[in-house]
């Protein structure tokens, strides 16, 4: 190979690598999950708990969740039919396995594609990410429950779930 040709190939490889890195950076960092932007969803799902990012569960989970609001983890969270339809549409469209979810659905890694879990905390990936959290941290006054993401991830409402 001619030395100058080799130089060109190396240069091309280097720029391809840079482009790849940039694309990855653009796709967002690993701890970002786009927060809920739909008004009805934010209001109805965000009164009692953080309005969890829709990409944290597959579409089948959201459908199952929205079909059983009368007994929502022991609480009656039912809403009128119109509101329920709006929220379901939004959640399904932005679910972690939606066609354009791309990397947002990475919390679903390792999940059986036929599974429709209702708890984000049951996802294999979630469990792996939280395996080092001490029991005393979960029961501390600031956290209290695994549903309280913002107890540790202070910017959870903005979609950032960084390690604290």
């Amino acid at each position: 190979m001619h030395p100058s040709f080799r130089f060109i190939v190396l240069g091309l490889l280097a720029s391809a690598f840079t482009v790849l890195l940039l694309k990855r950076a653009q796709a967002g960092d690993d701890d970002y999950f786009p927060p809920v932007t739909d008004k009805a969803t934010l209001q109805e799902c965000g009164s009692c708990h953080l309005a969890f990012p829709p990409s944290m569960l597959p579409a089948a989970s959201w459908k199952r969740m929205m079909a059983g609001l009368e007994d929502h983890f022991g609480d009656d969270a039912s809403v009128d039919a119109g509101t329920a339809a709006t929220i379901t549409r939004y959640l399904v469209r932005n679910a972690g396995d939606a066609r354009d979810a791309r990397r947002d659905g990475r919390l679903l890694r390792g999940l059986d594609p036929n599974a429709a879990p209702l708890r984000i905390t049951e996802l294999p990936k979630w469990r792996r990410e939280h395996r080092k959290v001490a029991r005393s941290d979960w029961t501390s006054k600031e956290v209290g429950t695994k549903a309280n993401c913002a107890g540790c991830h202070v910017d959870a409402a903005q979609g950032y779930f960084d390690d604290e």
């Binding site: 965000g46 009164s47 708990h49 209290g144 429950t145 549903a147 309280n148 913002a150 107890g151």
Partner: peptide
Amino acid sequence: DARAPGRTRAGK
């Protein structure tokens, strides 16, 4: 205290 904020079971 009704004039102070409360907190849901899920921490909100």
